[in-house]
C-alpha cells in the first residue's frame, strides 16, 4: 500500500496505454514519456506496461506502508527516498513508513514512479491508464489526490544494495527548451501542400514556444501565423498522437496521448513517434523547432528505440538476474 501525501490533479496513474480502441473513440493514452515508464518498470523486473505514476506537477510526495522498491525516471529532479538522496533514473529499496519525495524538475517536465510489482488496479478496456476525459481507468478515472491509497501487486525484485541506475544515451545533454530549442523530427501530413510557401518555410525555419494551454491532450504553440493558400473544409478524420494541426487562428496544436481520436483541422505535419518523449519532457514556455525527416529516418529511429529497450533488458538481467513475480 502506498499513500499520496502531496500531489496535484495532473498527476495520474499510467501504464503504456490502451491501443486497439481508436475506432470506439478511445485514445491510446498511457504515459506521455513511454520510454521513461517502460524503463522504470524494467529496472524493477516488472512488465514494461505495469501501472505507475506520472508526475506532471511537482513537488510530489508519497509514503509507502510496506517494504518495497521504486524506480524513478523521466525528468531530472531531486529525489529522496527516506533520508537518502536518489540519483536520476535510479531503482532502490524503500522501507515501510518512509516517504518518497520528488522536487521540481531542473530539466524536463514529467517524472515516472514505478513500484515493484506495479500498482494493483483493475484494468479497464485492457489498461490501467487514467483516461481523464472519459473518467475511467487508473484510480476512479481521475487525477491523484492527497490521502489516496493504492495497493501494490506482490513482487520480489532483488535489487543490489543501494539499487542501480540506468543512463540512456539519447537523453544525455538533450535540449532543455530554454537555453536551446528542442528539435522534433516531423513528417509532412495530408495538408502540408495546402499551406502557403511562407507558412511551410516558417514552420520548419522558425522557433515555436509551448503556451500555457498544454496538457496530456495536446500543446498549443505560439509563433508565426501559418496561413493556408485558401480556406479548407475537411470532414472529420482519425488522428494520431504527434499530429500538428493548424486551426483558423494559424497557431499550431500538437495532439498528444489523450487527444481526441478524430479531428477536422488541417494537418501540416506529424512529430515522429520516437520523438514524442521530447514533447512529454518539454515544459510550458519551452522553445521547439521542427526538423523534416524522411519516412526511412523515422522508422530507423523507432527501430533504434526498440533495440535500446532490448539492450536494456539484457543489461538489467546481467545486474540483477532474471526475476519472476511470486
Amino acid at each position: 500500500m502506498i499513500e499520496i501525501l502531496t500531489t496535484g490533479l495532473p498527476n495520474t496513474v499510467q501504464d503504456l496505454g490502451r491501443p486497439g480502441h481508436l475506432a470506439l473513440g478511445v485514445s491510446h493514452g498511457g504515459a506521455m514519456d513511454r520510454q521513461a515508464l517502460a524503463i522504470a518498470n524494467l529496472m524493477l523486473g516488472n512488465d514494461p506496461s505495469a501501472a505507475g505514476i506520472e508526475v506532471a506537477l511537482h513537488p510530489f510526495r508519497l509514503r509507502v506502508h510496506i517494504d518495497t522498491a521504486v524506480a524513478i525516471t523521466g525528468a531530472d529532479c531531486a529525489v529522496s527516498v527516506g533520508d537518502r538522496p536518489c540519483p536520476p533514473w535510479w531503482a532502490m529499496a524503500i522501507r515501510a513508513g518512509e516517504t518518497l519525495v520528488l522536487e521540481a524538475p531542473r530539466i524536463g517536465a514529467r517524472s515516472y514512479i514505478a513500484f515493484a510489482g506495479g500498482l494493483d488496479l483493475p484494468p479497464v478496456m485492457g489498461s490501467r491508464a487514467t483516461d481523464v476525459k472519459g473518467s475511467f481507468g487508473g484510480l476512479a478515472g481521475r487525477g491523484l489526490s492527497r490521502g489516496d491509497r493504492l495497493a501494490l501487486n506482490p513482487a520480489q525484485c532483488g535489487l543490489p544494495a543501494g539499487g542501480f541506475g540506468s543512463a540512456l544515451e539519447e537523453r544525455r545533454g538533450a535540449a532543455d527548451g530554454a537555453a536551446c530549442a528542442i528539435e522534433l523530427r516531423v513528417l509532412p501530413a495530408a495538408e502540408f501542400d495546402a499551406f502557403t510557401p511562407e507558412a511551410q518555410a516558417a514552420f520548419t525555419g522558425n522557433e515555436w514556444s509551448i503556451t500555457n494551454d498544454a496538457n496530456r491532450m495536446g500543446y498549443r504553440l505560439s509563433g508565426e501565423t501559418l496561413s493556408l493558400l485558401s480556406p479548407l473544409e475537411l470532414l472529420s478524420h482519425g488522428i494520431v498522437p504527434g499530429t500538428v494541426q493548424v486551426p483558423p487562428s494559424g497557431q499550431p496544436i500538437i495532439q498528444l496521448a489523450d487527444a481526441n481520436t478524430c479531428g477536422g483541422y488541417p494537418k501540416i505535419a506529424t512529430v515522429i513517434e520516437a520523438d514524442l518523449w521530447r514533447l512529454a519532457q518539454a515544459p510550458v514556455g519551452a522553445r521547439l523547432r521542427f526538423l523534416p525527416v524522411s519516412i526511412e529516418a523515422s522508422t530507423e529511429a523507432l527501430r533504434a528505440n526498440r533495440q535500446r529497450r532490448r539492450d536494456f533488458i539484457a543489461a538489467r538481467n546481467l545486474i540483477v538476474g532474471k526475476q519472476r513475480a511470486p
Partner: peptide, 22 residues
C-alpha cells in the same frame, strides 16, 4: 496493421512500421 479507424468518408490505418512499410 494494428487499427483501422473510419472517419467521415476517410479511413485512418495504424500500422507497425517495423512489420510493414508505408
Amino acid at each position: 496493421v494494428r487499427e483501422a479507424v473510419p472517419g467521415m468518408n476517410n479511413l485512418l490505418v495504424v500500422f507497425d512500421p517495423l512489420a510493414t512499410d508505408a
